[in-house]
Simulated scan of single mutants.
Amino acid sequence: MSSDTHTSHGFGRIVVAVYAVFALSASARSLYQLATKADEAPFAYGLSALAGLVYIVATYALATNRRGLATWTIGFELVGVVVVGLLTVFDEQLFPDATVWSTFGIQYAFVPLLLPVVGLWWVFRNRTIRG
């Protein structure tokens, strides 16, 4: 296997690292919000916790070369960020406080919208390679 098709080297390592950062940041943010002010926006904070879990599973799947799990997880992430993004654009009242995926990840420089596209591209680009 060439070094650029495995997540322990090259671009694959960068993808895993970015997912790991988002796993940590989304999880920490949501746990803090749920612990300190869950009554203010329980759905939004719970959704951020779900996003954190999705990022954790995606990081694991990519880091361990589990392409099927990565595809499903990242696909779920993409649908989530698009649906939540659209909901927050069309009806801001649904989310009294922002989630990681609100307005397509605007609070994170739109990385939540771009990350699943890059992640799926990387997985599909390397789908015929077996680890």
Rank of each mutant, 00 (worst) to 15 (best):
Y108V: 04
T88I: 01
T64P: 05
W101L: 11
Q107L: 10
L115C: 03
A58H: 15
W72D: 01
G131I: 10
F110G: 00
D91P: 03
S2T: 06
L94P: 07
L34P: 09
G75Q: 05
A109R: 12
A70C: 06
G46V: 02
I129E: 15
G52R: 09
A61I: 03
V54R: 08
A41D: 14
A26F: 14
V79A: 15
F76E: 02
A41F: 10
V18Y: 04
L24N: 10
A17Y: 03
V117Q: 06
D97H: 01
S25L: 14
F124I: 08
V82E: 11
A98R: 07
T59I: 06
G131V: 13
S8M: 03
I106E: 12
G10H: 00
V100L: 15
F43Y: 13
I106T: 05
I129G: 08
P112T: 00
T103R: 12
V84W: 07
E40N: 10
S8L: 04
T64I: 03
T36G: 10
T64M: 08
V84Q: 06
V18P: 12
A51Q: 09
A49Q: 07
L47G: 05
A109C: 11
V118K: 06
T59H: 08
A61R: 09
V84H: 08
L69Q: 11
R130H: 01
A58G: 15
L86S: 01
V118N: 08
W122K: 10
V123P: 02
A28Q: 01
I129C: 00
W72T: 00
P116F: 04
A51P: 04
T99Q: 14
V21P: 03
R127T: 04
Y108H: 12
I74W: 01
I129K: 15
A35F: 15
T59G: 08
T36I: 06
A70Q: 06
A61H: 00
S30F: 04
A44V: 03
L24A: 12
A109T: 09
S8A: 07
A58L: 15
L69W: 13
A28W: 06
A26E: 07
A38K: 07
A58M: 14
A63M: 00
R130A: 02
F110R: 11
S102Y: 08
V15A: 02
F110Y: 15
V82Q: 04
T99C: 10
G80N: 13
W122G: 00
T99V: 14
L53D: 02
Q107R: 13
A38P: 03
W122H: 07
T128S: 12
L115Y: 01
R125E: 09
G80L: 13
V89N: 07
A51N: 08
Y19E: 12
W72Q: 10
Q33L: 14
F90N: 02
W72A: 01
A44P: 08
F124R: 05
V83W: 09
R13W: 09
L115G: 00
P116V: 00
I14G: 04
R13V: 12
L69S: 08
N126I: 05
R66M: 10
Y55K: 04
T64A: 06
A51E: 03
S102L: 11
H6C: 06
W101C: 05
I56F: 07
P42H: 09
L115N: 04
G75F: 00
V117C: 11
